[in-house]
Every structure is written in structure tokens, then in C-alpha cells.
Amino acid sequence: MDIRRRRVLQLLGLSAAALTVKPVYDALAADPAAGRPRVGPGREQLKAKQWAMVIDTRRFASEADVEPLIEACHRIHNVPHFELKRWEIKWIWATEYKHAFSGTSSDRFLADAVEKRPFLVLCNQCENPPCVRACPTKATFKREDGIVMMDFHRCIGCRFCMAACPFGARSFNYTDPRPYLKHTNKLFPTRMKGVVEKCSFCAERLAEGKRPACVEAAGGKIAFGDLYDPASEAHQWVRKNYTLRRKVNLGTEPAVYYIV
């Protein structure tokens, strides 16, 4: 309730400011710029304070349930496949409970179902991200909507962010990935060798008003939305269910929640 009231107030304040600023802006921005194409978020852009994902792991029973999601992500994001394990790049993958929650949550005498279940892991878009703190060039940065983004053109490939991420969510291009792509999605950039990459919560899809590809492929088994918006599905799921997050004891505040 409180949050909602604050946001309404914020919005009112903003629109008041906008009303006063608008004429001035119009006067200043007159002509030369008019008619030029503008770069920036489009009208359909989805907005949030902190995007979050809630994965209902109860509804993922086997590899076959997770494969299509992983495939969807890696295909549209031009994530290459290497035979050589050393060069592996992955944005989202499935692992066992004991690996996903290593160190923070009991993995002994687990319920049978939980023990065998595949757990999807990806970048948690942490609210307090150590990778952002570590990056010496701001090539990794946190956006206003909570997404931890990568600038592939600024990254110097020092891999400090990889050491800083306590979830192993980041991959490095140990070689030029392009020859290893089976097909290329022309709408998404391919990477060059020597830069780091990771899941970006499909920021490019959110900009077009679409939900992340893995969420779409999950067909209702993953909720996505603004964690702080009581009306969002993600918020409602975490309110209604007992959820876990990975390594909460480290204080990074992961924004990916798991219903177990």
C-alpha cells in the first residue's frame, strides 16, 4: 500500500515537473533537432523498479522441460556452442539442487522429487551486484529497472566481474564465437573474442514490450514482473509461495526466486 502511495506521489510530482519543463524544453529544442529520428526507449517499453523472475521448480520435472527454454535463450542471443568445455558459454542452464543452492541450504536427505529436479540458473540481476562494483570500466552496470547490463564494446576483458560473481553466471569469449554459431539472429549483436557476457533479462525484448524468451517458452511456469509492483505476477507469486534465492547470505539480493 505504502509503496503504491509513494509511487503515485512520485508520478504526480514528475508530471508536474514535466508540465513546467515542457514549454521551456520545446523552446530550446526548436527546429534543428525536429524531425530527426530519436534513439531511446520506445513507447512500448516495459518499465519496472526491479525486474524479477520467479521459477516454479515444481513444474519442471526433467531435462525435457528445461531444454526448450535454454535453447530459446541461446538461439536468439547468438550464444555459441563449443565442443571444448574450456570455452563454454552459457546464459542459462540446468543443474541439481545441491549445486544451485550450494552452501546456503541443506542438501542432505532431500525430498526425492527435489533431488532429481532440474534447477534453472542464470544471472540473478542482483539488487546489490558485486560484479558491477568490481568492473573497472562500467562496462557492467545496473540500469534503473534493476537489470545488470553489459556493454560489449566497452568491456576490456579483465574478467574481474567473473571473479566477483558468486553465482558463476558469467562467461568469457575465449575465442571468436561467430564461427561456432549454427544460425545467427540478425536482430541481436554477436560478440567478439575477449569480452564477457551473461543473461540480460532480455532487455532488448522488454524494450519492445515483450517478456523474456525463456519466460515465454516456459508457458506459465515462470513468472516475470516488477518485484516492487504488487500488481505484478512475480510479486504475487513470491507473496503466495515460500521461495528460495541463491546465496542470500552474501547480501547480493538476487532477483531470481525459486518456488521449491
Binding site: R133, A134, P136, T137, I156, R159, F160, V195
Partner: peptide, 23 residues
């Protein structure tokens, strides 16, 4: 020699980031 993109090393100074220990 450890950098993936050594040509961009000056980015450390062009975009100084005091919260990074590497800086």
C-alpha cells in the same frame, strides 16, 4: 597480456570507476 581486449585498456582511465579495486 591477460586482457581479452588489450586495445581498450585505456577505458580504465577514460571511465574512471573508483568503486573498482582494479582502478
Amino acid at each position: 597480456v591477460d586482457l581479452g581486449q588489450p586495445m581498450r585498456v585505456l577505458n580504465v582511465l577514460l571511465y574512471p570507476t573508483p568503486n573498482s579495486v582494479l582502478f
